[in-house]
Amino acid sequence: MVDLLAKTACDGLASLNIGTVSLREGRAVPMTTLAPFRGQQVALDAALQAAHGLGFPPIGGSCQREEARALWFGRDLGLLMGVEPEATLAQYAALTDQSQGWAVMQLAGLGAEEVLARLCPVDLRLSAFGVGAALRTEAKHMQASICRLEEDCFQIMVFRSMARTMYHDLKTAMEARAARG
């Protein structure tokens, strides 16, 4: 059997440190969308608690427990990251493997909000978008998911095919932000 090499979405794209802001690829982890069947969201929430110790994410939010994180990913849609979903969840939701399908990047440091403000038409300041908040928005014409992991660290996700474009746009915005000092 041939040994296949897994390449992450940002393979070949160097980590960046520009001014006070850094960009690097997130660790490759299993990712699964959870789409609860109609009326099954409460049952799915309980099953998630039992299986992984976290609930179904509220609208605009996320849940975390150790390595596992569940992001709000759209209407009636959550994204479970970091763990393989237990088979019991399939009773209450459609589970779809998304691993390797999304480019996951982390933008961190003082001024990361100002970099994102150049790309996204939403208010991502701490006062409006706290730690753990997660939303779907546009990032330079790409459908993105953004989550604030820590006070000064954002996770940015776009479709894998757009990894290089997102990287380029983030790099340009980081340079523009650094140039203003």
């Binding site: 609208i59 605009g60 209407r75 038409p121 939403v122 928005t137 546009e138």
Partner: peptide
């Protein structure tokens, strides 16, 4: 109703 006030370009 889910996301709050958003710019026209998202729609």
């Amino acid at each position: 109703p889910l996301c709050g006030a958003r710019d026209r370009r998202e729609f």
